[in-house]
Write a protein that binds this DNA or RNA. Sequence first.
RNA 1: GGGCAGUUACCGAAGCGGCCAAACGGGACUGACUGUAAAUCAGUUGGCUUACGCCUUCGGAGGUUCGAAUCCUCCACUGCCCA
Length: 432
Amino acid sequence: MAGEAKPTTNVIATLRERGLISQITESGLEELANRERLTVYCGFDPTRPSLQIGNVVPIILLAHFQRAGHQPILLVGGGTGMIGDPSFKSDERQMLTLEQVRDNAERVRQQLSGYLDFEGENAAVMVNNVDWLGKMTLIEYLRDIGKHFTINHMMAKESVKTRIESREHGISYAEFSYMILQAADFLHLFDVMGCTVQVGGNDQWGNLTAGVELIRKTREAHAHALTAPLVTSASGAKLGKTESGALFLDPAMTTPYEMYQYWINTDDRDVGHYLKVFTFLSLAEIAALEAAQAEQPASRVAQRTLAWEITRLVHGQAVADGVAAASDALFGGGVASLAEANLPYLAQAVPTTIFAASALAAGLSPLDALVLTGAQPSKGAARRLIQQGGLYVNDERWSDPERPITREQALFGRALLLRVGKNRYHLLLVGE
RNA sequence: GGGCAGUUACCGAAGCGGCCAAACGGGACUGACUGUAAAUCAGUUGGCUUACGCCUUCGGAGGUUCGAAUCCUCCACUGCCCA
């Protein structure tokens, strides 16, 4: 399949100008990529139930390759996930149970399914390395693969260096062998699909080159490796870190609204860089957004675009539109501007409490409402908050703690958005 | 095993018989200002249908006293010193 159709654009140049290349093998990949259709793969180990935002970067690499006419392979590490990658990890991993790995692998497979085009002549392919690693015999592993690696070379790899030198932690034989398994993956995909390029995060460099070397030694063929840099912010913070933990792709673990808000709050200094990395907007469009942002900082136009694009990429356009509408209602236009259809996205955006219609009909004490939703720990605290002017009900400042909230204030007759302070919200919804 | 010092609110730390729901600092929260940022300034920071009223709180349990975070006894834990 590979090599039949001409690629359309210079994908390496595209990646380079977007700051998406950290290391690349000196193997003529750029010229080759312009000449023929390549098959490119990236692996994702199911070590957790969900991928994180950082995992999107190598997916985007694959997407750029696909847009340029090449064929991407998404590899789910159902086999390697049973061992655990030691690269740049200070401790031996807690081994997952086989059930956990299988369950995680299925989730990861679903999370990966939305980014690439699985139709057409350079359709993306999804594979799971347990399908071949699981069948390999010990003798095959040692004779066909292991024979081509020297321990000396493996020990010199930067990715495992600290573990080799560490007295306290050490490294098990299992984890030490991880790079060989990943090399075996590359060899397998080379053999059965003609795959000659592997991409990954920068921490994967050692594992990628292990595969390149294995293919050279056993098949006398050239394979290529390319890594994306670790994305960092101007303030040095690790990308995707929130108070509640990492930004997960699974909407049950990180709501699309949280995802959207995370990017909305991007520092001006980072927004251009992130647009290049996480969206497919042209460099001209990005430059225009940056200029508009610099001229009108309050518009947050670059951040809005970034947040919408990433949310759409991860969760789809309908969800991106919904959370954007909810976000605008919360921070800009007010809740009155929200369409009733977007109420579910608002409920996803803020903690939501269901309460009885009768309570509203009788007139709801704002003190009770604050305590009921957990927005305030006690009525005393709620009273202080109101007296300080810190409560808004559907955007109306509620300064009298004794004034009951009635049905007239409710949006669509059933929704009360309590705002505590500048930007803490609680939604009260009348139950069915 | 012996000796000494300590244990106060989210954290640090005052208080050493009534004026203590407990100084002060940090944090957190609210307001003003702002770009859903940072900085700054002001206020709030045990509970109770806000009441110069009541209730619960100063490691735990008892006791002395009209009255205890403050004094006594025992217990638990922490730190330092000596064996």
